[in-house]
Simulated scan of single mutants.
Amino acid sequence: MLLSVIVPCYNEEESIPLFFKEMEKIQAKLLGRYQLDYLFVNDGSKDKTLDVLRQLSQSHSAVNYLSFSRNFGKEAALYAGLREARGDLVTVMDVDLQDPPELLLEMVQLLEANADLDCVGCRRTSRDGEPPIRSFFAKQFYNLINRISNVEMVDGARDFRLMRRHMVDAILEVTEYNRFSKGIFSWVGFKTEYLEYKNIERVAGETSWNFWSLFKYSVEGIVNFSEVPLSIATFAGLFFCLVAFAGGILIIFKTLAFGDPVAGWPSMTVIVLFLGGLQLLSLGIIGKYLGKVFMETKKRPVYLVKERSRAQK
């Protein structure tokens, strides 16, 4: 049986040989039950990642790769890998070995033991080695998204998961341009169990994820899977309209009763600036959703392939 291993890569020339070496140990432990079919997706790397993949593909028939015309992002790489995967089982793994390859054996055993199980995922129980502020905001993101979205996302869940073919086919039916895979994996449903493990630091190279990129990624997740920000903007506007109306009544009453002394300019300035900022914030929220709609209507491809090691399936 074929087991497809999808590996997104961006500037990972140092990590790829180490990853492949560890995965070949896993292949030996599968005892011939599954044949690993590697699909590396080069997401417009600027180092020698593509050269390493070419050499690896030439020396190992089980290794294949796609190379994008530029950097389209990890979401595009995941989508491309899922579209190209040929296995009855499909797994997504990070090349930096933060996704422990030995867990793949447990994932296979769980699927074999439970015919009703569609997917086995992995989740981190700790974030050792990460900056404390990143860990804090990551936890707050999961708390927030699970409160404002109908799709439950597991705190600490990784993209590392083993899926049956029918689940992969269901994910591929979600053809939207603006993709947030953690949400899509949950949205399609299917019975999933999670294996827990402690965080492992990458073996080589540097991560391309910084605080700002993770923050933008979290915003994408909120916008893609919740309409609550739009509701907040609506209710905030309604609330301040009522406050303004009540304030107007109060001013009319005060003027009729006590006259109209000229006073309160500082407080008035603060109020105007506050309401102006609130309006801009609301327009920004609405604009974010409109921007998503705009990109969807363009019907642009999620990615463009410049080079591939095998014919498209």
Score class of each variant (00 low, 15 high):
240 F>C: 04
102 E>Q: 09
210 N>E: 04
150 N>T: 13
118 D>I: 02
162 L>A: 06
50 L>W: 06
310 R>C: 07
138 A>Q: 14
167 M>T: 07
151 V>L: 02
152 E>W: 15
47 D>W: 06
11 N>K: 12
252 I>A: 04
25 K>C: 07
288 K>L: 03
282 S>K: 10
242 L>W: 15
251 I>S: 11
246 A>G: 07
12 E>F: 07
73 G>T: 11
111 L>Q: 00
111 L>M: 06
233 A>Q: 13
62 A>C: 11
228 V>C: 12
99 D>E: 05
259 G>H: 01
50 L>Q: 11
186 S>K: 13
25 K>R: 15
22 E>Q: 12
136 F>P: 14
104 L>I: 05
111 L>K: 01
286 I>K: 09
246 A>L: 08
94 D>W: 05
215 F>P: 11
216 K>W: 15
5 V>P: 01
27 Q>P: 03
91 T>M: 00
272 V>Q: 12
81 G>Q: 01
267 S>W: 15
305 V>I: 13
298 K>L: 02
278 L>I: 14
137 F>A: 06
310 R>M: 13
129 G>D: 09
39 L>E: 01
64 N>S: 12
231 S>C: 09
16 I>V: 01
156 G>L: 11
110 L>Q: 02
312 Q>T: 12
244 A>Q: 10
67 S>I: 11
240 F>K: 10
160 F>D: 00
180 F>M: 02
164 R>N: 02
90 V>W: 00
154 V>P: 04
144 L>R: 15
32 G>D: 07
292 K>C: 01
40 F>W: 03
279 Q>T: 12
297 T>K: 12
255 T>M: 04
253 F>Y: 07
53 L>V: 14
164 R>V: 03
164 R>E: 01
199 N>I: 15
161 R>S: 01
209 W>E: 09
294 F>Y: 07
174 V>E: 00
159 D>W: 15
122 C>Y: 03
159 D>H: 13
202 R>D: 02
141 F>D: 02
234 T>E: 13
68 F>S: 01
212 W>Y: 14
205 G>F: 02
310 R>L: 04
167 M>S: 04
139 K>C: 06
77 A>H: 08
76 A>N: 02
115 A>Y: 05
41 V>L: 11
186 S>V: 09
177 Y>P: 01
79 Y>G: 03
147 R>F: 05
208 S>D: 09
186 S>I: 03
115 A>L: 04
268 M>K: 15
180 F>K: 10
283 L>F: 12
193 E>V: 15
283 L>D: 04
90 V>I: 06
217 Y>V: 13
51 D>L: 13
199 N>F: 13
211 F>T: 11
174 V>Q: 06
33 R>Q: 14
217 Y>T: 13
304 L>M: 11
7 V>F: 00
156 G>K: 06
156 G>P: 10
238 L>C: 12
97 L>I: 09
48 K>Q: 02
169 D>M: 00
58 Q>Y: 06
97 L>H: 08
284 G>S: 10
290 L>H: 08
295 M>W: 12
146 N>I: 14
54 R>F: 07
8 P>T: 09
118 D>W: 04
285 I>N: 03
144 L>M: 12
77 A>E: 04
37 D>N: 05
273 L>M: 11
275 L>G: 05
27 Q>F: 05
59 S>H: 08
